[in-house]
Amino acid sequence: MSILIDSSTKVLVQGLGKTGQFHTDKAIAYGTNMVGAVHPSRAGETFVFEGETDHSGVPGRPDTYRVELPVYATVKEAVAETGATVSVVYVPPAGAADAIMEAAAAGIELVIAITEGIPVADMIVAKRFLQGTDTRLVGPNCPGVITPGECKIGIMPGYIHQRGKIGVVSRSGTLTYEAVYQLTRLGLGQTTAVGIGGDPVNGTNFVDVLQMFEADPETEGVIMIGEIGGSAEEEAAEFVKTMSKPVAGFIAGTTAPPGKRMGHAGAIVSGGSGTAEAKIAAMKAAGIVVAETPSDMGEAMLRALGQS
């Protein structure tokens, strides 16, 4: 088991520009079941992706791939033709919120929005729109979701992941890779790694993902990686108190000055709220093993599991 996505997931890509094409190719090489693309100006065309798979040489897995991806004008049409239930959004910022809403209206169950730089006002409207639907949004401004060995949706490097029993949830991109890499090196594989994104208005939050990991029989422990700004980590800590599984964590931004946005639109300490200190304190109070430095994230997970 895993959460959100697995080898049977049929995936649609929205926005087949340079970035969308690049990561679609990487996803297919990883083994993701990409079934179609939505890109109005190229509707009717077919994109061919081919090359050597990431698991070339592994017994029982194909060495090469060749996928002819049909391009549709609308998500509605793509869903009708392909039966896709998940979409990944690479649409540029100005049209990204609309793309999210289009996917929801077309009945897509899970929308993973990679796009960075979507206006907050657009995301406020998109979240309001999603309220009336059964669609789950992950992101925006996130690396995506990966279930190692089965399905990779997003921009994370596939090879650092390894199948296992740890759930990963994070607001950051490269910092997540750092955590996953440490886990893998310590022999702690992952069930699913979810990047929830660095924007102030996002879809899925820590609590949603923690709930899914708690319910997933294969996941035995969870690591959550947060950063300054907002109160999502504090809310997550409250939820962790009710969890049966061990949780480790890390918060980036202890040294960030107040009032400055640290790269991510949502990473800002304003009016004394959203500080790393407050988040770390809340997490420790909930029994989360908090890594002191980002170099110790894997070790913290081992400690939480009682293996160190």
């Binding site: 994070s170 607001r171 950051s172 991109g173 490269t174 910092l175 997540t176 750092e178 660095g198 990686i225 950063e227 300054i228 890390f250 980036a252 931004g253 202890t254 040294t255 960030a256 640290m262 790269g263 991510h264 990473a267 790393a276 002191e292 430095t293 980002p294 170099s295």
Partner: peptide, 17 residues
């Protein structure tokens, strides 16, 4: 000099640590 905002913050934190 770091790639990624989260890792950049984490790098600052480690220097301080």
């Amino acid at each position: 000099l770091v790639n990624g905002a989260g890792l950049a913050m984490a790098t600052m934190d480690t220097i301080k640590h």
